[in-house]
């Protein structure tokens, strides 16, 4: 039963992370194009920071960093009279009221909080990748389109929202669909973040069971459980591939690209 539940957890993670990461990416790409220099630097730095470093290190880093950051802020807000330093050598100490989630909270709060942290981490990391894709897509929109918009007397803002953004998607789609595949393949990393996901349950349920503790004793079946997961992911990526190909076909219709031209010829 738990295994099925954890499949739902993975699907929920994908369903939440994909739009949020896209929003992060959009904000990052927009910031990287901004005229206001500090904002532009911020956007560029956000895009650049995930290069050159193993992503899994980011996953491990962000979860602790976010957790401590939240607790630190709550500590500042809730316990003004605290006089001990927060970093005591190797320990990170905040007052009881600032613990996140509260020590006496029920179990499901802890689990949801861990899951939310994981989603946020995924969104930040994948947002940076998406920002890079969208930034490239924005630059790929033919310049003549923007000049035409300017010639019609549109302001920068209008050009951006009415001409650039609607046209960039077709350039962004190959990159984004690649990203989606990678996101699917990154979901087992949830396990590292301490969420009880399919990897966790496959290990738990697959391990040897003796008749003393369960009605269904069996040997070490973990190999078969992981084979099942492997097949699950293969089918998932295969289906996504097909759907995204369809979508690309739909989007290229009527665009001033080779793909669109080919569609026009074929029709």
């Amino acid at each position: 039963m738990a295994l099925y539940g954890s499949v739902v957890v993975v699907l929920v993670l994908l369903a939440i992370t994909a739009p949020v990461a896209l929003a992060f990416g959009f904000a990052g790409a927009s910031a990287a194009r901004a005229q206001f220099a500090p904002l532009r630097w911020l956007g560029k730095a956000y895009i650049a920071i995930v290069r050159g470093v193993p992503d899994i290190a980011f996953f491990l880093f962000f979860v602790i960093a976010l957790d401590q950051g939240i607790e630190y802020l709550r500590h500042k807000a809730l316990c003004p009279g605290w006089d001990m330093p927060i970093r005591q050598g190797n320990d990170f100490v905040v007052c009881q009221a600032a613990k996140m989630p509260l020590g006496n909270a029920p179990q499901w709060v802890h689990e949801t909080y861990g899951f939310a942290l994981a989603v946020l981490t995924f969104s930040i990391v994948f947002g940076a990748f998406a920002a890079n894709v969208l930034f490239g897509a924005m630059r790929a929109v033919p310049h003549a389109q923007l000049e035409t918009a300017a010639a019609y007397g549109m302001t920068r803002r209008q050009t951006y929202w009415r001409v650039l953004v609607p046209q960039m998607w077709v350039y962004a789609l190959p990159g984004l669909s690649n990203l989606w595949m990678v996101l699917i393949k990154a979901t087992p990393l949830l396990f590292l973040l301490g969420v009880e996901d399919i990897v966790y349950w496959a290990r738990e349920l697959g391990g040897s069971k003796t008749p003393r503790f369960t009605d269904y004793p069996h040997g070490d079946w973990r190999m078969w459980y992981f084979l099942g997961l492997l097949v699950f992911y293969l089918i998932f990526t295969r289906v996504s591939e097909k759907v995204l190909d369809r979508l690309m076909d739909r989007l290229t219709t009527g665009q001033a690209t080779t793909g669109g031209e080919a569609r026009r010829r074929a029709a």
Partner: peptide, 25 residues
């Protein structure tokens, strides 16, 4: 190529380990 590119490396590691563990026994 499809099998190794279509599935997560993470799962491949797990599967490989348990496969070898089973073979070892």
């Amino acid at each position: 190529i499809f099998v190794f590119r279509g599935s997560p490396l993470f799962i491949q590691f797990f599967f490989g380990y348990f496969l070898f563990l089973t073979l070892k026994s």
